[in-house]
Design a protein around this nucleic acid. Sequence first.
DNA 1: TATTGTTATACTCTATAACTATA
DNA 2: TATAGTTATAGAGTATAACAATA
Lengths: 164, 164
Amino acid sequence: MAITPIHSSTALLDHLARISRAHTEASLEQVGLRPRQLVALTLLRETGPATQQSLASAISIDRTNLVGLLNELESEGLVARRRAEDDRRRHIVELTEAGASKLTAAEVALARAEAELLHGLDEQERQTLYSLLQRATAGHVVDCTAAMHERASACVEAAGDDPC
Amino acid sequence: MAITPIHSSTALLDHLARISRAHTEASLEQVGLRPRQLVALTLLRETGPATQQSLASAISIDRTNLVGLLNELESEGLVARRRAEDDRRRHIVELTEAGASKLTAAEVALARAEAELLHGLDEQERQTLYSLLQRATAGHVVDCTAAMHERASACVEAAGDDPC
DNA sequence: TATTGTTATACTCTATAACTATA
DNA sequence: TATAGTTATAGAGTATAACAATA
């Protein structure tokens, strides 16, 4: 039985993400989205409506930078902001139908570039990678939706250092 | 047999890489490395000595930005630059023993943060993810080492749009 | 007093163009 | 003329501090 070597996925993740951006840049630009906008729309679809603060922490960008990002998306009608009724300090952000359509269009445009990115893997392995990425990321965003903000304090107590 | 849904790993990759950076930032800073420096050292270890241009394309950063990155690494004795004998325009970059040690130290420091990042996956799944990432990235860097630069023209013809 | 969203701003990262030395 | 490395610099991305509205 061999000694388990040090397997740092950190560098590989950073590396592959960078390669991915290079490959998908053209496809995204063609649709008119930037990488973080794609991530934001994807997360809004997966988790539903969210406050700006929960969305910011969920996609790991600063809340101050999310403002401009949402301004752009909102001006294009891809997301909608409304005041939360129970706490008028909060904005509830949600994906519009146009946003969902654009997201689907982006994914179609990305499919080819992504196949090129992952040409070293066969179809089943790509499914496995997707599944693992999905579950790995899900462990960090699942409690951050707007619908759950009432349970925020309990969440923080339960999760320890998870800032959602 | 179900229709295969659109599985865009692009957003997930970008997302997880960003979460990863947030988690590993402290560990890396503690060792004194930045993310791209970690990637550069890792790739130099995997592929051996490389020219700056091949290294730049291999880790997907601009060759102009690689200069400053290598200046820092070289001033700390982590990498060494020497002129290529057969073509004095080229620099051959290689990992020093100090660089290899620092890389190992970084990986040890990262192990804990990485476990936290991937807490949604069990040990076998983490191994699978690592393996998939490694093979996915290997498909983009395998022909870019300095030892292969003699075969560069043949490589370009064979690989089509691979710019190495 | 604390929190949400916002603005202004400094800092880092990335990409483009031009220069040198070698080929 | 073309290429490898370098420099300078503009643009995009990111983080920090302060403010207004609300709790």
